[in-house]
């Protein structure tokens, strides 16, 4: 295939050294993500999905091996790689608007322009009217949506999303899934998406990477070439769902 590889994980291992002993979490992980691809990392709970994303974004560094993004080795966080967090990581001292426009603002984009862009994403995630609210004044689901808007507003080339819809109700979740699909197909971005929901994985992914339980590595890959938008109850969808569920390691 002549596709351009943007993320290459090469023999990556990660050990956390704690007082209660060494904790090997990622063990010889290898995978490649291509340009404009939507990859879903899927695995049992606590298997190390967040850790893998932290390694890609450079928040953690591998103990062994290396991660190459767009030809460069990852040595720390960079605005080219954005992240939406599983647990909310908002700047509590900024209101919604200031949180969302943080990226453009530190990069010196004019107030008018960045306000417009931020407003666009705030509207998109359905928080219109809450621009001046501080995070403590928002519900759990609303905070999570601020995190999504903040990451999108920075327009990174690669966007990592760690179970971003965990706290949303079914409808909002459904809308956000459609929105993510639309943005990534329209604006062409490389997305690495973590979820523990099989349906969400199959609905969104070009490719699903199934991870082993702790210490994690790639167990299997599935290419999903069902036509979009996908139908949750089509026979192919259900068959794939069945297959993945069967292949997955038990959590406990």
């Amino acid at each position: 295939m002549s596709r351009k590889a943007v993320i290459e994980c090469k023999h990556v291992s990660k050990t956390f050294y704690t007082l209660s002993g060494d904790h090997l979490v990622v063990d010889d992980l290898n995978f490649t993500v291509y340009e404009n691809e939507f990859v879903v990392l899927f695995g049992p709970g606590q298997c190390g999905k967040t850790t893998v994303l932290n390694l890609i974004t450079g928040l953690e560094l591998p103990t062994k091996g290396e991660i190459i993004v767009a030809g460069e080795k990852v040595t720390g966080p960079s605005p080219k790689r954005g992240m939406v967090y599983q647990t909310t990581n908002l700047f509590m001292w900024y209101n919604v608007m200031k949180n969302v426009e943080f990226g453009p603002s530190v990069r010196g984009i004019s107030k008018k322009e960045r306000r417009k862009k931020a407003q666009h994403y705030i509207d998109l995630v359905g928080l219109t009217g809450f621009e001046k609210h501080y995070p403590v004044q928002l519900s759990g689901g609303m905070q999570q949506r601020v995190g999504i808007a903040r990451a999108y507003c920075n327009e990174p080339d690669i966007i990592c999303m760690d179970e971003p819809f965990g706290h949303l109700d079914a409808q909002t979740r459904y809308l956000m899934e459609k929105e993510v699909e639309r943005i990534s197909s329209q604006e062409k971005r490389t997305v690495v998406f973590v979820t523990n929901n099989v349906e969400e994985a199959i609905y969104l992914a070009d490719r699903i990477i199934l991870l082993r339980n702790l210490p994690t590595s790639v167990k299997k890959e599935y290419t999903v070439d069902l036509p979009r938008p996908r139908n949750y109850v089509s026979p192919e969808f259900l068959a794939l769902r069945e297959e993945i569920t069967r292949d997955m390691d038990p959590t406990l």
Binding site: G45, H167, V198, L252
Partner: peptide
Amino acid sequence: MDEPYGQLDLQLKYH
């Protein structure tokens, strides 16, 4: 319990 099982995977949730 306020959305206690939101982050759990399916198996754990059922359990």
